[in-house]
Design a protein around this nucleic acid. Structure first.
Length: 480
RNA sequence: CGGGGCGUGGCUCAGCCUGGUAGAGCGCCGCGUUCGGGACGCGGAGGUCGGUGGUUCAAGUCCACUCGCCCCGACCA
């Protein structure tokens, strides 16, 4: 039974997504600021959980955090030709202050390669200064044409890593380290989102990059969402910003740089991968609250004994389970059950007079909504049971998402199959086409090459478009 | 930016065609009864009708402009 206020996915997937955002109280429209949202406390708490999981991994791989200015002199942005061209349409400028025209306008950063490049050129003198491994948590502004809460907003929050290396190999190793050990590990193990990792085509790569690697996830409507990118910038930015160093032989060398980022879009991915028609579903490792306790009583005497039991049981949870007790007196238990399901709390524990008498509790798991996911278990050993259950929910969410992706991925040998596949999910196929061919597929089928996956076949086959023999397979999909 | 739809109490919407001074349900506040899957009764508060300008004796209603949101498309994390 779908919740009041939530459009079923099958009826209108876009509307379902917006309903979840509103009903789970994640965000509010900042209708006075075009394309912007307010991250409400529940939505921001999810971002904080994402931040802490990523920050841990970013630091574990040797990076440190810093912060660079929001405003970038316009002249700096213009230094890398391909980069300018890529971002020009979506850059906002500050041209006047107090009514007076500025001698040189500033742009609000759409990303920080340019201003960071300027400072890196100042800071780096010797091979001993390398590698330089810095990350920043920041907001950026891109004036996109069409916005959607979390998935694409005018201003968004993200982290952007910017590193400098002495050799091309080092830069490439860094780019892949981030892709696998930071993003891939975090997405799959913390967010329970299975990803396809691979290389972007020339058409899809970051403006100014040598090559771009990305992680692509499948949403429940079969569309792809780029969850993160890691760019090997080669020497393009180093040349434009004069990032050079003296090597061991005292020869001046141009450095190699990388950049990589994930954004608050991940919250959108989280919603679209796991949630259902009952509301939000949060993986336990990301959920700001993992267990909610709903006490049940109908008079003061029952309240006293129930709350005593709640206090005794939850005392053991501190430091092991993130939980809260819903002590609101004005709402019925049934209302609370529905509300916490809507908000995606992984486990609900109900404790009433019968449980006090029988030394049991009712435990409901969110990944199986309604009464179906509810069982009565003894109070003895409850803490361990809940911890195991959280791990089980985490695992089953990942397994379910992976199964969905596999069931919606099809191998295409011709254009008709390719079209049919991208209407359902991902199309995997041999590809030897040009950039123009890729554009044609996009025009005809609304699908783009999301990735050239790392796992490639041992044997060649005919290109889905040209028929030419090739060993390269790609993933086509409609994308967010 | 192009095509379509929509802005009226916190939310969902009616009223607009055919101008006459604003309504419903839910929510909210108070009191009481309730409480194991979205409780009920009684009483109450709450709206310069997205904004600006115009037409008119009179505008939520008609006209123009503008801002924002949603859907589809092109651009993108």
């Amino acid at each position: 039974m779908p919740k009041a206020g939530i459009t079923p996915r099958a009826q209108d997937y876009s509307q379902w997504y917006l309903d979840i955002v509103r009903e789970a109280d994640l965000a509010d429209y900042a209708e006075i600021v075009r394309g912007s949202i307010v991250f409400k406390p529940t939505g921001y708490a999810i971002w904080e959980a994402i931040q802490s999981g990523l920050d841990l991994r970013i630091k574990a791989t040797g990076h440190v955090n810093a912060y660079f200015p929001l405003l970038i002199p316009k002249s700096l942005l213009l230094k890398e030709a391909e980069h300018v061209e890529g971002f020009a349409p979506e850059v906002a400028e500050v041209t006047r202050v107090s009514g007076v025209e500025l001698a040189e306008p500033y742009v609000i950063r759409p990303t920080s390669e340019t201003i960071i490049g300027y400072f890196y050129a100042k800071w780096i003198r010797s091979w001993r200064d390398l590698p330089l491994l810095i990350n920043q948590w920041a907001n950026v502004v891109r004036w996109e044409m069409r916005t959607r809460p979390f998935l694409r907003t005018t201003e968004f929050l993200w982290q952007e890593g910017h590193t400098v290396h002495a050799t091309e190999e080092d830069a490439e190793r860094e780019t892949l380290l981030i892709l696998h050990d930071v993003y891939g590990d975090f997405l799959e193990n913390e967010m329970a989102i299975p990803v396809i990792k691979g290389l972007k085509t020339e058409k899809e790569k970051f403006a100014g990059a040598l090559r771009t690697y990305a992680l692509e996830a499948m949403m429940q409507d079969g569309r792809a969402l780029q969850a993160g990118t890691s760019h090997n910038l080669g020497q393009n930015f180093a040349k434009a910003f004069d990032i050079t160093f003296s090597d061991q032989n005292n020869t001046i060398q141009v450095a190699w740089t990388t950049s990589w980022g994930v954004s608050t879009r991940l919250i959108g991915a989280l919603i679209m991968v796991h949630s259902d028609d009952e509301g939000l579903v949060l993986p336990p490792r990301i959920a700001p609250t993992q267990v909610v306790v709903v006490p049940i009583y109908k008079n003061e005497a029952e309240k006293v004994s129930v709350m005593a039991t709640v206090a005794r049981l939850t005392a053991e949870w501190k430091g092991r389970i993130r939980f809260k007790v819903d002590g609101r007196d004005n709402l019925s238990p049934g209302f609370k059950f529905n509300e916490w399901e809507l908000k995606g709390i992984p486990i609900r524990v109900e404790i009433g007079p019968k449980d006090v008498a029988k030394e049991t509790v009712a435990v409901a798991r969110r990944d199986r909504p309604g009464r179906e996911g509810k069982s009565f278990i003894p109070q003895a050993g409850l803490t361990e049971h809940l911890i195991e259950l959280l791990a089980d929910i985490q695992q089953s969410l990942f397994t379910k998402a992976l199964k969905f992706r596999e069931e919606h991925t099809f191998f295409a040998t011709n254009l008709a199959e390719l079209q049919a596949a991208v209407e359902q999910g991902f199309a995997r196929c041999y590809w030897a086409g040009s950039k123009e061919d890729e554009q044609r597929i996009q025009t005809d089928f609304k699908a783009t090459i999301r990735a050239i996956p790392f796992d490639q076949p041992p044997t060649p086959g005919p290109c889905v478009l040209t028929g030419q023999e090739t060993t390269q397979q790609v993933i086509f999909a409609r994308a967010y």
